[in-house]
Design a binder for these strands. Structure first.
Lengths: 301, 301
DNA sequence: CCGGTCCTTTGACTAGAGTCAAAGAATGAC
DNA sequence: GTCATTCTTTGACTCTAGTCAAAGGACCGG
């Protein structure tokens, strides 16, 4: 994982960067902000995509776009002046202001989308259909991997809010998937995955928790992997695999030589992943109501 | 070729655009222009990469970067003031000013490169080695196809300077590759590829000619493809194939039902390409000193 | 109800990016 | 030599983007 990056990979990456920013990046900005400043265009777009039915708070806009409070305040006021946006107080917290698009604002965003589509279409039209498919495939792969690369998996105290958030979502997920439902008392106690006894990891995508995984001591020298979960928005990136690798590395750091895990019959994709990651099926190693398959992997430094 | 672009392709393209500009684009700019304005950083980079031994003229910089003359003038003067650049008169045309990097300027560009490398490394480090390779592969493919998409193949008068430039380079190429050399009197006369008799196409990448191809009438209803050439900088993009397709479309437009071509024994990659494009080998159809293989393709509307 | 914290607004700036027009110096065609 | 053209320089602007600090209203815990 931390093997040094080869210069060829760096060179390929930079070649692409240059090519892309020159050909697309510049155009992009010019297209989007054709008759209004780019900052406003971006702001409108963000309100449209991130805003719920009540709109979105200025506070959230600020953190999402990384803007200065004063700057944002002025920009929204300008947009309000042009009738693109309405500002209202937050129903519960009067310090917050909510921004919502007006019909005119929605029309503007639609026009923005039309332009962005036109830009993409213009580029793709220059290619024969089979090459178009090749290009979009490559872009989809690249986007997937770029997202994955930006996600960090960090050890976190199992009591921390981010850990609880993930486990709650995990429990809801299982409850929906298991025919018999899922009882959250089955979740591992925080003490069992803290300190000497184990560890808890949370995956963050830009400070937002998007996955988790726990490791606990089963017997001296053997660990158990539990509660590997990935947020629906972050699935199909290969994140589960990455969390698994992190947990294995942690076990190895503690000189545990084997990790085991169990899984429910309905989770067939998970089983496929475990096998692909070097896990082999073993007989039951414990009693666990939701378990129907058991796996193990020997760790080598 | 001009089949309409599917919405899924457009969506994939835009998803990637968003992902890339958010994650890399912004960083890129911040990294590069860390202690100097972004415009100056870009300018330095351009002088370093596009400048020859004598430097590069302001005129060329202007067109390459699409800058206003006054803006550029001031920027170069500022760089000169900081000892990054020296300005001198063009040896032959005293209106032109040449910009060349000083050692300090080169050091600055080196530092820029170091930062860009660090950025790329930082992203790639977040991925396991096999995924790194996947990402750079995808990026290489995408860059190749983006370049190809930006190239336009246009009909051009065979007397035009761009046509002659390409044919000169083509002749030099062949002269270097054929053991017996190449005599440029073998080049087709402009009249033979004009009007009713035929057509000449030049491929442009941002107004720079990077390839060509000719079509001429062989017999009523049959065309001959000649002088398909691609600039060394634009090889391995699939441009030759594209030029070939353009020539075939032109033949079809003239209701010619078959196209033929011959090729020299040394040009084995060309032969592979012709076969891959649906050409089949046929007996000799004419006398041509440099020909050793003959191909034909029947055209269907 | 008091003090600290959070969110927004406002005023006062700075710097970068870019535009436009006028003017000056060279060049090239006639 | 003259005139139109081509490049560059200069002056005078505009607009966006962004920063910083002060101030004021709202909330929350004690």
């Amino acid at each position: 994982m931390t093997e040094s990056v080869s210069t060829e990979h760096v060179a390929a990456f930079r070649r692409f960067n240059r090519c892309f920013t020159r050909r697309i990046g510049v155009l992009n900005d010019h297209y989007l902000g054709q008759d209004r400043p780019l900052g406003e265009a971006r702001l409108l777009f963000e309100i449209a995509t991130a805003g719920g039915p009540d709109g979105i708070s200025l506070r959230e806009l600020r953190t999402r776009l990384g803007l200065d409070a004063g700057y944002l305040s002025r920009m929204t006021k300008r947009l309000q002046g042009r009738g693109m946006v309405v500002l209202s107080a937050h129903p519960e917290d009067n310090r917050l202001r909510m921004a919502r698009l007006t019909p005119a604002g929605h029309a503007e965003v639609k026009e923005q989308n039309r332009r962005a589509d036109a830009l993409a279409t213009g580029v793709l039209e220059g290619l024969a259909p089979d090459l178009r498919a090749q290009l979009t495939d490559a872009m989809t792969t690249a986007a997937r991997l770029l997202r994955l690369a930006a996600i960090t998996v960090k050890p976190v105290d199992a009591h921390a809010p981010d850990a609880r958030t993930c486990l709650d979502a995990y429990a809801d997920d299982l409850d929906a998937r298991f025919p018999e439902g899922f009882d959250r008392s089955d979740l591992v106690a925080p003490e069992k995955v803290s300190g000497e006894a184990g560890a808890f990891f949370v995956a963050y995508e830009e400070d937002r928790p998007v996955g988790c995984g726990a490791l606990r001591r089963l017997t001296p020298g053997a660990g158990e992997i539990k509660h590997v979960w990935v947020h629906p928005d972050a699935r199909r990136l290969g994140l589960a695999r990455r969390i698994l690798q992190t947990l294995e590395a942690e076990a190895l750091r503690r000189s545990w030589t084997v990790v085991r895990l169990d899984t429910h019959a309905t989770l067939s994709e998970a089983q496929t992943m475990y096998r692909a990651c070097g896990y082999t099926e073993i007989p039951a190693y414990g009693e666990h109501v939701y378990a129907s398959h058991w796996f193990e992997k020997r760790l080598a430094p």
